[in-house]
Design a binder for these strands. Structure first.
Lengths: 344, 344
DNA sequence: CTGTTAGCGCATTCAC
DNA sequence: GTGAATGCGCTAACAG
């Protein structure tokens, strides 16, 4: 009732459209249109300036909640990642956050344990409750199968392929494997081993398939060992590789954490790097250059992946149909001291 | 107009309170009260069950946006962290997310470069636009001074002290330093060095002050070297320590990334660990147990810090006044192979 | 025990 | 060129 009698709003409350409308003695709808730069609105410049000025003066901020309610769009999205110490996630998340910010979006962080994650559908409620417009899922396991299927709500799978095609945003794991194989092949290696996570993780599954194929083509022998993406996992898997009758002479390692474990196993076995065994990491990280022997790695376009996932999700939210995405930025092999010609 | 004539809502739209009210032929407010378990509401169990059942049947989900608009509270908070690969942030963030989830809150992730971050007040707009209820800031630098002052909006500083007291949530860095000094002191070390970040970072500042005091008390000599919290930074700082006429015999390192650099410097200098130099990390991480020499560390209660920050922030949002918080969970020294008796 | 009423702050269709 | 009216979905004060 007293709204119009106090043109200057209570300094402790945020100014609303109504406040500034009252101040310039115009209608809220007019103010709204001006502030939203409504294209098909003709208004005399003078009035327009008065409005803008009053808004500025009162420190007007549009209320995102009210706007979301009206527009039925929140401008937020949820990103479900395994908040692993595993460094790739911070890079991916960084790319996603940057892209989101550039597009006026806001990202909800959700952590979910990597092993036995809840099915993606668990997070549907965030969309159903209008907390976010869509989901970026990076924790799906291959085995999730039916149970993990996401119904209606907009979503993409990031660095994982979902239960059915059409919503996946991934990197070129095959190419990553090719870079590795080609590199060690040129160095004369014939028996190669790979230490990686469980095949329930989609990237691992794809790398494994790619390796088989590449090795068959090049006439090489490949051994694949699967363990957790942890130091201990890397340690155990590498020990197993080294205890074979015919040791591999080159080993690829799927995660940075596993690299540490691999080193320990090699040390214990008295195998020198790269004298006896060449080593390649599939996670690039600055620390690799500082280890006891600096480690050759395959560098993936992680930031681009994060950005691409957000873009793809927004495409779905806007109902622009779209398909699976493979991030096209180039991969690079970073040559350090851990790879050398095969022994003998 | 046709709302009441179709009790079963359009399957493609979410069911609203009105939909389920229509279905059970009751008023929305009644439905709302039942669904919110309004304590001082007496309702006959039968009606109550009908409502619950209808809600269940229609898959009703409260619309968080509408609720937020009405209640003037979003149930979200923003957390501004340097999304560094630096592993401590993922642990802190994990603790914060867990606590938030347990309390029905949702966390907006914001990344901000560590060096020269925007002042905390930059993020005020998130509160002003009603996107979140408050801010957790973990990127303030000491030098930010006036410009970084946060006005009215609810906020806390996490692992940093803000421009003025009353809103800080921190860990016991002094105690961390004490554990370190005490440990190496018992091993007979007298000259100790510390490699850490710039003093503009509050934790570093506090550790430095604590070290000075402790060493004075114990009659030890301390050298402090400040560099970026990166591998390269750790490398350079350690080199400087080692090039002194009187080398320190024990070195503490402020971040995991710097530990890698420190190792490289030690290796190059031909200094053996722990034979010539004992090494302690102030970041605990599983990989420390797998390095060329496993590294003794001080383990901090990072998850608790994250949780405490969220709790403190919600206290402020609810207008329950509160003061600075020091997380009280115990620190632990994890004894590994990188520390031994002082040489000679 | 349950219904009425009145907004939260904004965008938008329609009228003049 | 501008104003009036309506409603997004929900909660809460007040009636009966």
């Amino acid at each position: 009732m007293t709204t119009s009698e106090v043109p200057r709003a209570n300094p402790h409350k945020r100014a609303t459209l109504a406040d500034i409308a009252a101040a310039v003695d115009l209608h809220v709808s007019t103010v709204s249109r001006v502030l939203n730069h409504d294209p098909n609105l003709s208004i005399r410049p003078e009035t327009r300036d008065r409005i803008l000025h009053a808004a500025e003066l009162q420190g007007y901020r549009p209320n995102a909640i009210a706007r979301a309610l009206k527009r039925a769009r929140t401008g937020a999205l949820a990103m479900v990642v395994p908040l692993l110490r595993n460094s790739i996630w911070s890079a991916i998340e960084g790319g996603a956050l940057r892209y989101a910010r550039e597009h006026g979006l806001v990202v909800l962080a959700i952590e979910e344990p990597e092993d036995e994650p809840r099915p993606a559908s668990h997070y549907q409620y965030l969309v159903e409750e209008s907390r976010v417009d869509g989901l970026v899922i990076a924790t799906a396991l291959r085995s999730s199968g039916k149970r993990g299927q996401l119904p209606i709500v907009p979503h993409v799978y990031m660095n994982r392929r979902g239960p059915r095609p059409g919503n996946d945003v991934v990197m070129d794991e095959e190419q990553a494997m090719a870079l590795f194989v080609q590199h060690v092949s040129q160095l004369g290696h014939h028996r190669i081993g790979v230490v990686d996570g469980h095949t329930r993780i989609d990237t691992v599954y794809r790398r494994r398939a790619a390796l088989k194929q590449l090795c068959a083509a090049e006439g090489m022998t490949a051994f694949f060992e699967h363990e957790d993406h942890t130091e201990e996992g890397g340690y155990r898997a590498t020990r197993r590789l080294l205890s074979r009758a015919h040791r591999p002479t080159a080993i690829g390692v799927g995660s940075l954490n596993q690299v540490f474990g691999a080193f320990k196993a090699l040390r214990e076995a008295g195998a020198s790097v790269p004298g006896d065994v060449s080593l390649v990491s599939f996670d690039e990280d600055e620390c690799l250059a500082y280890l006891e022997v600096s480690v050759t790695s395959v560098s993936m376009p992680l930031e681009s992946l994060g950005a691409a996932a957000v873009r793809a999700l927004m495409d779905r939210v806007e109902r622009r149909i779209s398909t699976d995405v493979m991030v096209s930025d180039p991969l690079r092999l970073i040559h350090r001291d851990s790879t050398a010609r095969a022994p003998r």
